[in-house]
Write a protein that binds this DNA or RNA. Structure first.
Lengths: 189, 189
DNA sequence: GCCGAATAGTCAAAAAGGTGATTAGTCACT
DNA sequence: AGTGACTAATCACCTTTTTGACTATTCGGC
């Protein structure tokens, strides 16, 4: 039950519909959790029936009606309880790393292509996160924002996401370069 | 079905028993995947019945007997097939980040304590990975090893693990420092 | 001689997470 | 008039992961 808390944390800042929440989980929230729309709708329903969020119907003329959810007092209490619980250690879980682990036994060209693609993907996320951070801090410097801004939580998690993707990009580029070099050396033998 | 491939990748270098594999998944292999012993035993059984690994009984005098597994030709082919498949994008999934996202609504002291603990944990992993890397490259320089060494796969994934934990440590320390500063500022108001 | 830790492995069930398909209306464009 | 993208959401499975036991044997320390 951790998706539960990720949803609560995501709803702290704004009242969102399931659909908007799904968007958020695709971009910013993905820094700390990932989930598909179906999971979110299911989780929202459970959270509502447990009284941790409350939804209100919003009738729209030009679009399908939607339900906006906000965290209740009970939801905040649940988050507090969660915040005091022990953490499971975090770990990377990544297909691409499994492939690199087997690098000496699988097709090198394919691997280099995938590393290059992942580096580009990481680069795109870096841009995205850079923009999100700029939007959050507005015209303040990062230092000032972190000292005096309200709601620094999302900013801090975004910083972690940014660093993670920078790490991804750098490692992918370096690994691809190393594999390319070895391939060349092998071909020349 | 990615645990499957993580197990195959882990067995490439050495013939291991389920128990040893579980150890490996607790330290080095955890760089790219994580799993509990029960999962590994179950996965090994499935892999064997699918002919992707083969096990041989080793009778031991002083210890309970064990079964050592190695990857078969079919297993290598399966890994190759997997290496050519598309990657799911990787993402962080971390309780602690969820808590930090909610930083402005939960107990700051508790959060600082958890960030500090996590930083220490990351530091320990950094030491561990540093040692693993030294052992793998022996007396060669990293550059030389990566150019000419056999089996650089595990080395590369370990480098990623190292960078990840360094990122964790740095971010945890910085976040804790920021929260401490804000707490002080708040108390002085 | 007992206790706890380490080796080696297994079973069953619950919780969590993921996939695919489908509905239905609007909007913009071609 | 048709195509595809966007908003908004639901249904029905399926797979993976986690939790919590339980069985044996051996080694080291007290």
């Amino acid at each position: 039950m951790a998706l539960r808390h990720a949803v609560l944390a995501a709803l702290l800042d704004e009242e969102l519909s399931g659909y908007q929440l799904a968007k958020a989980f695709d971009t910013g929230v993905a820094n700390f959790w990932h989930a598909l729309p179906q999971q979110l709708y299911a989780e929202l329903a459970k959270l509502e029936s447990d009284g941790l969020v409350s939804g209100r119907e919003v009738v729209q003329d030009t679009r399908p009606n939607k339900r906006l959810f906000q965290v209740t007092e009970a939801g905040l209490a649940e988050l507090d309880r969660f915040a005091a619980s022990v953490n499971k250690p975090s770990f990377i879980r990544d297909d691409l790393l499994v492939k690199v682990q087997a690098a000496d036994h699988v097709d090198t060209d394919e691997l280099i292509a995938q590393l290059t693609e992942r580096a580009a993907f990481a680069e795109a996320k870096i841009e995205l996160f850079g923009g999100l951070l700029r939007r959050m801090r507005g015209d303040r410097s990062e230092e000032k924002f972190l000292r005096h801004g309200a709601r620094i939580g999302p900013y801090l998690t975004c910083l972690r996401g940014l660093a993670f993707e920078q790490g991804n990009r750098d490692w992918c580029r370096r690994s691809a370069a190393i594999l390319r070099e070895r391939r060349t050396a092998h071909a020349q033998r």
